[in-house]
Design a protein around this nucleic acid. Sequence first.
DNA 1: TAAATAGTGTCTCTCAGACAATATCTT
DNA 2: AAGATATTGTCTGAGAGACACTATTTA
Lengths: 251, 251
Amino acid sequence: MPDVSGTGPEESFLAAYNPADHPPFAVTADLALLAVERGELFVLTRRRASHPFEGRLGLPSGFLGETESAGEAAERIAREKTGLGTSVAVEQLKTYTAPDRDPRMRVVSVAHVGIAATMNARLPKVVADGQTQWTRCADLKGAEMAFDHAEILEDAIERIASRMEFTLVAARFLPEAFTLSQIRMVYAAVWGVDLDPGNFQRKILASGTLEETGERYLASGGRGAPAKVYRPRVTGDPLRPAFLSPPLRRA
Amino acid sequence: MPDVSGTGPEESFLAAYNPADHPPFAVTADLALLAVERGELFVLTRRRASHPFEGRLGLPSGFLGETESAGEAAERIAREKTGLGTSVAVEQLKTYTAPDRDPRMRVVSVAHVGIAATMNARLPKVVADGQTQWTRCADLKGAEMAFDHAEILEDAIERIASRMEFTLVAARFLPEAFTLSQIRMVYAAVWGVDLDPGNFQRKILASGTLEETGERYLASGGRGAPAKVYRPRVTGDPLRPAFLSPPLRRA
DNA sequence: TAAATAGTGTCTCTCAGACAATATCTT
DNA sequence: AAGATATTGTCTGAGAGACACTATTTA
């Protein structure tokens, strides 16, 4: 009969735990920061300058500080790599723990997804370190990335794509106010489909998550009628996007 | 201008990383193992025998082995604590990283959800260590649990509840073959709602994920007509439950 | 026979998607 | 005026939920 003392394996382990006795785990936060420009989806990447995977593209990443949660670390990384302010909202995605995912040592990575708002139809500025850049997600399909970052990116896009069915997260890709064709292009970019402008408009307005600003704006740049400008209807928490009811389902 | 060398913070960190120099992170896999008996949802718990949270209920948990992924560790824990065979399928849920979640040291917990199949309408056997037991989830609502395990449990139930809308995961709570009222009671237990028997039957059969075995079985124990027995229609991967099309949406 | 469960049928309402039609604006 | 975009309207079919009704079996 095991455990006669009534003390389980993890309790006795921790009671006797001596840090120096065990090979440590390193814990990082990785970040897939997404943005949309001209109907195309981009992700923030860093080209690796050293071993391992030298020369390949990877996602920004960093170790957790001693008093920092993984989410806080991911937000810090987003701030450090972009010209965005303090308000980069990131969401935890999944944790990658394969023992050999980093050839140097055991590294557990808590991956996050974030969305960067496009202002004036331009991708946000990134630090000029010669490594950090926005990369078209379409160009990364099937491409070799560092570590398991290709898998993380794929999971990240799928997470946001599915969140967009039920919430207004898509608005995070845009400035505070935007036209319906702008947000429709965000949906189209992330889902990789074309959307009927009429049906899209009827559905997203029916969800009651948007309100008119009273202004009009010619988002298309060229011809056509200027469209009404909308903003998300404020719900209690500005970080949590409004809930779409009925949802905007993918096909 | 930072990083003139072109070497980013994480690369230089890892290159210079010396395990003994840094306070290590411990990484555990926690498991919320769910089961349904007589229309009620249960979770596998362990009553803590020592500090911290002595006397409180917690979820089974264990450290990752050196060559073990978090998912493998969670499956190992499920096997060790129950009389179930090797085929306990678990899914990663979320990682909990608050710096003070364990008062003794920095512990990052990769939480998992699992489902245990109820055979002969009885919960699976658990190891007789005097600590491990099945606990009614309804009794844990608002109860004090060890660490952040109450939050993990809540997230776990929500995850399974939402998976059940689009897949046949509900069948994992049951033996290989079952009646429609049995699987309806799984839905009712996890979702916490009553379901119209007629509508449920029409919808789940329309999804095309079940096939008749040709047998009949009186699941209710007492009166009533014996119901047809069904089994999941096999799709390629036996671990991945069939996809419900159209889905069975919650209200 | 009464009661409980299994299974089917019907009706209504909502919503999705296809697509036509009109309005508005720039070149 | 021509062309592009914005916006509204119409039609059809699928599905959800409410609920009535029949069939089958045991107490």
